[in-house]
Amino acid sequence: MIPVKFDYTHAETVDEAIKLLQESGGEGKLIAGGHSLLPLMKFRLTEPGVLIDISRIDQLKEVKKEGDRMIVGALMTHNEASKHPLIKEHVPLLADTVRQIGDLQVRNRGTIGGNIAHADPAADLPAAAVVLEAEVIVQGEDGEETMGIDSFIIGPLITMLPENSIVTGISFAIPPAHTKSVYLKYFHPASGYPVIGVAAVAGVGADGNIDYIRVGITGVGDIAFRAESVEQTLLGQKPSKALIQQAAKLAAEEGEMGSDLFASAEYRENLCRVYTERALSSILL
């Protein structure tokens, strides 16, 4: 449980963090809550030469609503996010999702930005991120850029974060006011990670038909995905048990199911169907 020796420094501002990254010559790694990085370092699975602590950059702890988007500072902890009045009011799915991450101690340290930047295939947050059409706000040597979640996380633990850059925040789409949302998770009994996590937002219009639907699934494979076939089946239709059952059968369509010690791909495919059906039923029926 003891990491390899490393040096430690901390940044007071984003610019300073970028500068420290540049100076580290590829050896530097950012640390905020450390709940993704330290467990790997303790097993010596990663050995950065220098840790650049960004946890004191206060400007990255803010939450603000900008039009139809909610901008969450990268350093906001999961616990803070789950309780934040703006988040609870406008993107309850995000609050519900982060409330189910790990455990209280982890939620007190782990950050939204760290979670996304780590791109753990087994993480909870990516399900909500794909559903809420998240954009990752990145600051680098050449200024700020915004990357869609799909183009940011491209594989397990793999992101397109440019060199010497820092995730400063995540922007989430605020779903229409009439929608309801849910995050339904099957906890791995040991790790607490989702064996499957289904995030869904759905709304029914004045005509009684589904006019807004987003479904995201995490935990089952290398990367979280939007269950678009499910969405397409439901959109414009009147919600019913039969319809949801029919749609949920397509839940695994866009994803690649992974196998591990706990669950096979075939079983995960089944979980996709069942959990999607249950998640959708809870907000549509």
Binding site: H188, P189, A190, L261
Partner: peptide, 13 residues
């Protein structure tokens, strides 16, 4: 041993 950490081996919670 594939179930060799508390991430894989589930002690009751």
């Amino acid at each position: 041993l594939l179930s060799g950490t508390l991430m894989d081996y589930a002690l009751p919670k």
